[in-house]
Each structure stands twice: as C-alpha cells, then as structure tokens.
C-alpha cells in the first residue's frame, strides 16, 4: 500500500497545534512509516508538489494570505481537518471580532501605549503585505472542512489517533472528556 500523503499549515494560529503534533515523540518514526509529508512547516516544503490525501489546518483566517493558503489546501487535499480551537472557531485571534478594524490598526500603529517613533503616522500598506480581513473567520466558513478536532491544542495522543484513524479508515473514539472543554 502506498503511503498516504499529509500536508499541514498554520494560518492565524500560534503553532501550538504543530507543537502538539511533535509531542507524539518517537511515534513520529512510526508515523513516517505510514505517511509521507508534503507541504508542511515540519519539513519546510513550501509548495504542494503533488495531490495530498490529508490536510491538517491550524488557525483561522485573519488575512488574505490565509485565505489563499486555505483554498490551496482545499484544492490539493482530499480530506481537510480543522485542527484546534482557532481553526474551528477563530480562537484567541477572533477576540478582535467585536472591535472595528480601524480601531485595531490605530491601536497597533498609531495610538497604543507601546507605539513609539511612528512620527509620520505610517500604516502598513505595502502591496506585498497580506491584507487584513474585517474579522477572523473560522476555516469552515471559507472552504468545506471534513473533520474537526477540538482542543487548544488537541493533545498529541488525540492527533495521533486521528492520523491513525484516517490512515487505517477505522472509526475514531471521541469520549466526552475529549470534546468538552468549558
């Protein structure tokens, strides 16, 4: 059986979910027997080189680049998994959703207590920069997401179980403690 191809990315996240993935420790050696990584920060492959089976998405969408990356993942992966709170609900970055974007930018670049020396009142507007979205969107509002794995971050064993379930095609057990956080 040929190995399943896995891609991962971190959008508006903190890389905590990826760190949690690395927490599977030495089982990563077992994992690479089962799967092959394509585009991912883990192996630093920057662009898709082939069609993938599984895409793991960490983080929601806060800017135009996140949108492009997410749509690229949808195009290149058969199955997409929203990994962790930010991908599923926007998470911590979505705290800004109740505040107008103008206020957020002004606080960060013009009026905030830590703003020193921006005497020309410059706002980041180079066309090379990603454009900020009006609010932070959960991934499933932008593309179709097949599975959701809650947690902040989902713990390593859970990610391991998900990957094994997706590879073997077995149904996964999700006991109550795993999906209840509040």
């Amino acid at each position: 059986m040929s190995k399943l191809v896995v891609a991962t990315t971190s959008l508006a996240g903190c890389f905590g979910c990826h760190m949690s993935l690395l927490d599977i420790d030495e089982r990563i050696l077992d994992l690479i027997e089962l799967v092959e990584f394509n585009k991912s920060p883990i192996n630093d492959i920057k662009t898709f080189t082939k069609q993938c089976d599984i895409g793991l998405i960490e983080g929601g969408c806060c800017n135009s680049e996140n949108i492009h990356v997410l749509k690229d993942f949808r195009k290149n992966c058969k199955i997409l998994v929203s990994l962790g709170e930010c991908a599923i609900m926007g998470g911590l970055p979505a705290l800004r959703n109740g505040i107008p974007i103008e206020e957020c930018l002004a606080e960060a670049y013009l009026d905030g207590p830590t703003v020193k020396g921006n005497i020309h009142k410059i706002l980041p507007n180079d066309k090379e920069l990603p454009m900020l979205l009006d609010k932070v969107y959960p991934c499933h509002e932008v593309v179709k997401i097949d599975y959701y794995l809650p947690g902040c971050p989902p713990r390593a064993d859970l990610i391991w179980d998900v990957l094994v379930a997706l590879v073997t095609g077995d149904e996964m057990k999700l006991p109550y403690e795993v999906v209840k956080f509040d």
């Binding site: 135009s64 507007n125 066309k127 454009m131 900020l132 979205l133 009006d134």
Partner: peptide, 14 residues
C-alpha cells in the same frame, strides 16, 4: 472582507 482595512491604511486591494 478586505475592503475596510485597505481603505483605512490607504491601499488598493490586490
């Protein structure tokens, strides 16, 4: 989605 922030920072959305 990008209109508001582009207007505020003064850039044309690309």
């Amino acid at each position: 989605a990008v209109q508001e922030s582009c207007d505020f920072v003064g850039r044309i959305p690309n």
